[in-house]
Design a protein around this nucleic acid. Structure first.
Length: 109
DNA sequence: GCGGTGACTCTCG
DNA sequence: CCGAGAGCCACCG
């Protein structure tokens, strides 16, 4: 099997698990929260290693442009997000100003 | 050890 | 707004 989950992956998953329903976070955000600033790609790899039946809300992680990066599964991820109330712009872009999850920052809006 | 690759991101034009 | 280029880190053959 492909690389067993290490402590780093566990921490990344934990951060993702804390993203509230109806909100999203970028790969960079998750990396920073997990104590790995600049390791966005590491996050993508960690999510790829999640089991199919996981309860981790992996679909709440999108790229910095507010778009879905998941290859071949964009439709599935988008459906899940829309089911939670996350709205998509024209060609599948999310308004991060509105739906981005800020862990340590109070709403200023 | 090297080069290719990817669920990334930023800068430039 | 979009694409190209570069920086990035870890995995793989």
């Amino acid at each position: 099997m492909p690389s067993q989950p290490n402590e780093i992956d566990q921490r990344i998953w934990q951060v993702v698990a804390l993203i509230p329903r109806g909100k999203v976070a970028t790969y960079g955000d998750v990396a920073a929260q997990a104590g790995l600033p600049g390791a966005a790609r590491r996050v993508g790899r960690a999510l790829k290693g999640l089991p199919t039946d996981t309860r981790i809300p992996w679909h709440r992680v999108v790229n910095a442009a507010g778009r879905i990066s998941l290859p071949g599964g964009a439709g599935r991820q988008r459906e899940r997000l829309e089911a939670e109330g996350v709205e998509f712009h024209d060609s599948g872009r999310i308004n991060l100003k509105r739906f981005r999850h800020r862990p340590s920052g109070a709403d200023h809006h």
